Simulated assay, not measured.
Amino acid sequence: MKRIHYITIILLLSVVSLFAQKPKGYSIEGDDVVFTFHRSDYETLSHDYSGNRIDFDDLTVDNVVVAGEFNNWSKYDWKMTKIDDDTYELRKPLSKFDGNYSWQFKFIINNEYWAEPTNRDPNIVDAKNQNGKYLHVYNLKMFAKAYPSEDGNVRFRLRGFEDAEKVVVAGSFNKWDDQSFQMYRIENGWELKLQIKPGEYEYRFVVDGDWMEDPSNPDKVLNEFDEFNSRLNVGKYVTFLLKGYQDAQTVVLAGSFNDWNEEDLKMEKTENGYWYYRLPLPAGKHHYKFIVDGEWILDPDNSVREYDGNGHVNSVFMVK
Score class of each variant (00 low, 15 high):
residue 182 Q to E: 13
residue 184 Y to H: 12
residue 184 Y to K: 14
residue 184 Y to D: 15
residue 184 Y to G: 13
residue 184 Y to I: 12
residue 185 R to N: 10
residue 186 I to G: 05
residue 190 W to K: 01
residue 193 K to Q: 13
residue 194 L to H: 01
residue 195 Q to S: 09
residue 196 I to M: 06
residue 197 K to S: 07
residue 197 K to I: 00
residue 199 G to T: 00
residue 200 E to S: 11
residue 200 E to A: 12
residue 201 Y to W: 04
residue 201 Y to N: 15
residue 202 E to V: 06
residue 205 F to A: 02
residue 208 D to M: 04
residue 209 G to S: 10
residue 209 G to L: 12
residue 210 D to H: 15
residue 211 W to P: 02
residue 212 M to L: 15
residue 212 M to K: 06
residue 213 E to T: 15
residue 214 D to P: 13
residue 215 P to V: 00
residue 216 S to Y: 08
residue 216 S to H: 11
residue 217 N to S: 07
residue 217 N to P: 06
residue 220 K to Y: 07
residue 220 K to W: 03
residue 222 L to P: 04
residue 222 L to G: 07
residue 222 L to R: 09
residue 222 L to F: 02
residue 223 N to M: 03
residue 224 E to Q: 10
residue 225 F to A: 11
residue 226 D to K: 10
residue 227 E to D: 08
residue 228 F to G: 08
residue 228 F to Q: 06
residue 228 F to Y: 15
residue 229 N to G: 11
residue 230 S to A: 10
residue 231 R to C: 03
residue 231 R to S: 05
residue 231 R to Y: 10
residue 234 V to K: 00
residue 236 K to N: 09
residue 239 T to F: 14
residue 239 T to H: 04
residue 239 T to Y: 09
residue 242 L to W: 04
residue 243 K to D: 12
residue 243 K to T: 15
residue 244 G to Q: 13
residue 244 G to L: 15
residue 244 G to M: 13
residue 244 G to F: 01
residue 245 Y to T: 04
residue 245 Y to Q: 09
residue 245 Y to H: 11
residue 245 Y to N: 14
residue 248 A to F: 07
residue 250 T to W: 13
residue 251 V to C: 08
residue 251 V to F: 06
residue 252 V to W: 05
residue 252 V to I: 07
residue 253 L to N: 02
residue 253 L to C: 15
residue 256 S to L: 07
residue 256 S to I: 00
residue 256 S to E: 08
residue 257 F to I: 14
residue 260 W to P: 00
residue 261 N to L: 09
residue 262 E to F: 11
residue 262 E to N: 14
residue 263 E to T: 12
residue 263 E to C: 09
residue 264 D to R: 15
residue 264 D to C: 12
residue 266 K to H: 03
residue 266 K to R: 11
residue 266 K to P: 02
residue 267 M to I: 10
residue 267 M to T: 01
residue 268 E to S: 06
residue 268 E to H: 14
residue 269 K to Q: 10
residue 270 T to M: 05
residue 271 E to F: 08
residue 271 E to S: 13
residue 271 E to I: 14
residue 272 N to T: 11
residue 272 N to A: 13
residue 273 G to I: 09
residue 274 Y to K: 11
residue 275 W to A: 04
residue 275 W to S: 03
residue 277 Y to D: 03
residue 279 L to G: 09
residue 279 L to N: 06
residue 279 L to W: 02
residue 280 P to A: 01
residue 281 L to V: 02
residue 281 L to M: 00
residue 282 P to C: 04
residue 283 A to T: 01
residue 285 K to M: 01
residue 286 H to F: 04
residue 286 H to L: 00
residue 286 H to K: 04
residue 286 H to P: 01
residue 287 H to G: 03
